[in-house]
């Protein structure tokens, strides 16, 4: 297990090639340790296990900039009495996303409330800093069904009570999204709320473009909740309008490539050129006749 963590650290500690974008490396930092802001977010996607996202920032000229290549240590519990999970270096957006390995999850899973701590310790030029997040264990379910030809998405949320039993949660406001290339497109319109069974249903819009098979990636998110953290449920469904692609680059148009020139144009140009070349060949042939006549 140690080996795994070691390897994780190793992989991530190989520095990124970033020419000149390394931020916050003023000369002053050498003498005085930099004060940093360390934030820690808890995420869980499709109940697959905890993901810890630490972000390291520092204040420069009244605005925060992210710090790259800072080693962040992750603990389960607080730093006094805790289980060391591993450490990671921040990437070029100042983030370190730590996936708690399955082997450790079994230990963690025994309680209903988790405390995670992220710490920056003994980093050269950086003041030590730690931050924690307390999370209540939760579970989500996402399903799709069709009722009277109306497509619906059903979402359900449970949390653990003090005894460790999973109970539904009321009055949560999950947001329903479709994954798009540059961001999440909200589809739930007005605020959807979970009922006493922890269930929240929305009517799925029928005018969304999917991929060529009509597939859409649906994502339901509770963002940075005080008790549960960021809880995401994801699934794929073929309820989109299948994309009919017309490859414009293959059309024979005036703005297409030379190889795809309009037929009429190819024909006209070649016919004209051919006619003239033919005539010129005839003229040259005549010159040859003149030549042979002189040499008979």
């Amino acid at each position: 297990m140690k080996k795994i963590i070691y390897s994780l650290v190793l992989i991530l500690s190989i520095s990124l090639c970033s020419e000149g974008i390394l931020i916050g490396q003023d000369d002053t930092t050498v003498n005085e340790p930099v004060k940093i802001r360390l934030s820690l977010l808890y995420q869980n996607i499709n109940n697959t296990g905890p993901r810890l996202l630490a972000t390291v920032k520092t204040k420069v000229d009244r605005s925060y900039i992210t710090l790259e290549d800072v080693n962040v240590k992750f603990y389960f519990g607080d730093s006094d009495e805790s289980l060391y999970l591993g450490s990671l270096k921040t990437n070029d957006s100042g983030e370190a996303l730590f996936l708690v390995p399955e082997t450790l999850r079994k230990i963690i899973d025994t309680t209903a409330v988790y405390l995670y701590t992220a710490a920056v310790q003994n980093e050269p030029g950086i003041k030590d800093k730690e931050t924690d997040v307390e999370i209540i264990k939760s579970k989500v379910d996402l399903s799709f069904y069709e009722e009277d030809s109306i497509k619906k998405v059903r979402y359900q949320f449970w949390t653990a009570d003090s005894l460790g039993n999973m109970i539904p949660v009321e009055d949560l406001n999950p947001i329903f999204y479709i994954e798009r290339l540059f961001g999440l497109l909200a589809v739930s319109g007005e605020f959807a709320t979970t009922d006493e069974e922890g269930v929240c249903e929305i009517v799925f819009p029928d005018n969304l473009l999917g991929d060529s098979n009509g597939k859409l990636k649906v994502l339901v998110k509770i963002d940075d909740h005080d008790d549960y953290g960021t809880i995401i449920a994801k699934a794929q469904i073929d309820w989109g309008i299948p994309l009919v692609q017309s490859d414009q680059s293959l059309e024979r148009e005036l703005w297409s490539s030379g190889a795809n020139a309009p037929i009429y144009l190819v024909f006209i140009v070649n016919a004209l050129l051919g006619g003239i070349v033919f005539t010129l060949i005839y003229i040259i042939f005549n010159l040859y006749r003149i030549y042979t006549l002189s040499h008979e």
Binding site: L254, W255, S256, S257, G258, A261, P262, L265, V266, V269
Partner: peptide, 11 residues
């Protein structure tokens, strides 16, 4: 070698 017949320059 890359003549593009749609262009007046080619003509």
């Amino acid at each position: 070698i890359h003549a593009r017949i749609q262009s007046p320059i080619t003509w």
